[in-house]
Design a protein around this nucleic acid. Structure first.
Length: 464
DNA sequence: TTTAGGG
DNA sequence: CCCTAAA
């Protein structure tokens, strides 16, 4: 993988100044993550762009935010407004740097008419021939630039440097019309696109932020009231949770959202590319995943870290959830399968600390798995109870068949059952029958869960 | 803040 | 897995 290939990818690039009057779009962390691999390290000294990096994966419209972003973008963008924004010093504009690579590109085109129109529009405007057909990728680079606060805050020479760099980049693209001359505050070193490491990016972003702050000072306060969309709290949560390393970026983004509503924003929209120098890295960098999946990917990585012993998610907890719902926007955004070792650990913990002391169990046995909250443990236990009794029931009724779907080892089930006998789940059937003789309660403990199970099944069937 | 329970 | 009420 060398620079040339990237240049090829970017042959479809189009650059134009876009005037976005008042849209501010938050950066999505996942996307930032994506960018990591692609974005050249912004020269700290050269980059005067300010704003957040934002790449959105707008696949299949599943990414609402992405669409919204796009929406705002479309609303406010004037294409080819090269002159119009000159001297528009106070304005708040967005920098939009948009990479689209063919694979995703087409996908998007197919799935989202709205976006597709935009993209087509873009590509038609650029003279680039487009290599999208090639095995590599066609990319669309859309970037916009706005005069930043009249360089009062920033060095003048900067611009020159950047301009030069940009030109250099574009000039190397065969398909790129030479007349496209824009002054870009962004400098992307294509050759280093892949060589990046996180720290570099992070520092770059930080730098951006810093400078952005500078610029902001120069902007009239009135302009600060810009339309913007802040990321869901959950999004932030998720991000910071699954990718601690990016926390800085999160904070950065967040900060921006809350404080500077004005200011230029650099959106980098980078789409999948199948660059695969090595299998592993390609796997890791794979942008082909949906954001949704990326989250789980992150978690998976974590898990693998923890259970290096090669534990597999043998326990498909909920077939329904994994198949149909995972696609949909279901609430269980990040569902992490319980592995057998985990289950065993849980059972052990319960037998040791008792049912109900979830925090303790979590503290002692699951301290390393940040994604397992005490509540999760409890829920899992609940499910285990249900499963165990269900299995028992099943065995009475249908013998096997169903068991195959639930690879829960017998010993575990047995253990669960024992534990269930010892301490029935709190309040499961508290007042009514607990009075009965111990033997009675024992029997009941066995019998009552199936009831709830059947109830659940009914409900589920209704759902489907 | 943790647990229980329901969705 | 998420949310909420209760302890």
């Amino acid at each position: 993988m060398d620079g040339e290939e990237y240049l090829q990818k970017c042959s479809n690039m189009k650059c134009q100044r876009v005037h976005v009057d008042e849209s501010y779009v938050p950066a999505f962390q996942d996307e930032v993550t994506e960018v990591e691999h692609l974005l050249a390290e912004p020269r700290n000294d050269h980059v005067s762009l300010d704003g957040s990096l934002d790449s959105h994966t707008t696949l299949n419209g599943k990414d609402d935010l992405g669409l919204e972003v796009l929406d705002g973008f479309l609303d406010d963008v004037e294409i080819d407004d090269l002159e119009g924004t000159d001297g528009f010093s106070g304005a708040c504009e967005d920098y939009l740097l948009d990479f689209e690579f063919a694979g995703k590109f087409e996908e998007v085109l197919g799935s989202d008419p709205f976006e597709s129109s935009l993209l087509q529009n873009s590509s038609s405007e650029s003279n680039s021939s487009g290599l999208s057909g090639s095995s590599i990728v066609g990319g669309v680079l859309k970037s916009t630039e706005v005069p930043i606060a009249q360089s009062e805050c920033k060095n003048d020479s900067l611009e020159e440097t950047l301009t030069y760099e940009s030109h250099g980049t574009f000039r190397n693209n065969p398909g790129q019309p030479s007349k496209v001359s824009c002054r870009y505050n962004i400098s992307l070193d294509m050759q280093h696109l892949q060589g990046l490491d996180n720290d570099q990016v992070a520092s770059g972003l930080l730098t951006c932020k810093k400078e952005k702050g500078l610029v902001e000072k120069c902007q009239p306060a009135a302009l600060r009231e810009k339309r913007f969309r802040k990321p869901t709290q959950r999004y932030i949560e998720e991000f910071s949770d699954s990718r601690p390393k990016e926390k800085v970026l999160t904070a950065d983004t967040k900060d921006k959202h809350s404080s500077d509503l004005s200011c230029n924003v650099l959106h980098i929209k980078i789409k999948a590319l199948k660059k695969s120098p090595s299998e592993k890295s390609s796997n890791e960098n794979s942008d082909l995943m949906l954001p949704e999946l990326q989250v789980s990917k992150g978690r998976l990585e974590k898990e693998e870290l923890e259970y290096d012993d090669g534990s597999i998610p043998s326990e498909s907890d909920d077939g329904c959830a994994t198949t149909k719902r995972s696609r949909r926007k279901d609430r269980r955004k990040h569902q992490k399968m319980w592995t057998l070792p985990e289950v065993m650990k849980l059972v052990e913990g319960i037998s040791e600390y008792g049912v109900g002391r979830w925090t303790d169990i979590k503290r002692f046995l699951f301290s390393s798995s940040s994604y397992r909250t005490p509540i999760d443990l409890r829920d899992k236990w609940r499910n285990l109870l249900r499963a165990s009794s269900a299995q028992k029931h099943k065995r009475e009724a249908e013998e096997n068949d169903e068991l195959a779907l639930r690879p829960l080892p017998f010993n575990v089930v047995h253990r669960v059952r024992e534990l269930a006998k010892i301490h029935p789940y709190p309040r499961q059937r508290g007042s009514k029958k607990s009075r009965v003789s111990q033997a009675g309660s024992f029997v009941i403990a066995k019998d009552s869960p199936p009831v709830s199970l059947s109830k659940r099944n009914v409900r589920r069937n209704n759902c489907t």
